[in-house]
Amino acid sequence: MRYLFLGAGAVGGTIGGRLHQSGHDVVLVARGPHLTALRKDGLRLTTPDGTHQLPVPAIGGPEEIELTPDDVLVLAVKTQHSAELLDQWAPRPVAGGGTAAERLPLVCAQNGVENERLALRRFARVYGMCVWLPSTHLEPGRVSAAGSPRSGMLHLGRYPQGTDNLAHRISADLAASFFDSPVTDRVMDWKYAKLLGNLANALEAVAGPIDGELRSQVWQRVQAEGEAVLAAAGITHPSVDEQHATRGDRVTLVPLDGEQRAGGSSWQSLVRGTGDIEADWLNGEIVLLGRLYNVATPINAALQRLAGTFAREGRPAGSLPEADLAALLDL
């Protein structure tokens, strides 16, 4: 199989780079300065076992490659960029007849729970992947992943549910490439559990690390709103204890030589000045479900708005004044 990573940032770069290291056929799809750096020098992947300069092929879009029936598309961008890429790749012809949407599997290696629905509108075979992968992408051509002894844990399954032979083949490739990849017939349960954890992304992005009494209080309220919404919607998910038991000490963060551990994906978006952020699809998912099931979600809604404002206005990550943060508790 050949893996095409539609998105070569922290997640796509790490998974694609590790698969490449293990001898698998990988192509990274990127844009702008990141694409330029990948084409010039390859991918610089820093992990606990060292820094690796990997000559992974990189392209800018579907017009630069001929698709084959053995290709697996891996969508690894933030949700706000999913529809554009899906529209670009779905109609592309595949050798032997048919289109990518008709013939090729597409794996959503992304946070949030909306990407699979977006993909299934266009692609016949969609797989969800719950990405537990501490990784950082702040500079063109460079990605770091601090997990050890495994780089990450990637639950995988068919969407909306079920498993098949391809899921097990992908899982086997990942297991041989520094990942644990349990195959599950209810992958979205794991993705909803991850969603609850990702509600912290916007808080960290605008207010900084979640430490101290004030930030901890806000985080507890954010999480409580999320739990209440999922309960009202009847959405099941693994408990925190079950998640910890599954991961165990398989993905432990360790210091990387020459690398400073950055914040999460939303924090990284603000630092890179991308102009957009994923809060609409994380905290915004809780707000949406709250409106559907008549559950109040004022703090998630406030963080959704704040994160969007920070991204659009280019405000520095973690710069929310303490008084504004404290005001969230009065909502």
Rank of each mutant, 00 (worst) to 15 (best):
P160Q: 10
Q217D: 11
N201I: 04
A327S: 12
L288C: 11
T99C: 04
F178A: 14
L86Q: 00
Q217P: 12
L292W: 13
M188T: 15
L328K: 04
E204L: 08
N300I: 03
R261S: 12
V251P: 07
L256S: 06
G273H: 02
Q260I: 11
G264Q: 00
D71L: 02
L203K: 06
D257R: 15
W89T: 00
E102Q: 12
Q217R: 09
V218A: 00
R44Q: 13
G60I: 05
A109H: 05
G318V: 04
L43N: 07
R122W: 09
A326K: 06
E64I: 09
V113Q: 02
A146D: 13
L154S: 12
D164R: 11
A202N: 03
L156K: 03
L320A: 13
L120T: 14
G226W: 05
R247F: 10
A296Y: 06
G141V: 02
P105W: 08
L120M: 14
G61W: 08
R312W: 06
F310P: 01
L86N: 00
A228I: 14
L118T: 00
G273L: 12
L203P: 02
V74N: 01
S151Y: 08
R121S: 13
G208L: 05
A202R: 09
D211Y: 10
D49W: 13
T274W: 10
G98D: 01
D49N: 15
H137A: 04
D173L: 06
P62D: 00
A323S: 15
Q260W: 13
A167Q: 09
S319H: 05
P33D: 15
S82L: 09
W190L: 13
E116L: 04
Q88I: 13
Q260D: 14
L154D: 05
M188H: 08
E259T: 10
E227Q: 14
L73Y: 04
E102P: 01
G208Q: 04
L86S: 01
L199G: 08
G308W: 07
G98C: 10
N165A: 15
Q80R: 12
R247L: 14
E259W: 12
L203G: 05
E114T: 12
A95Y: 02
P321F: 08
C130Y: 03
Q304V: 11
D241V: 14
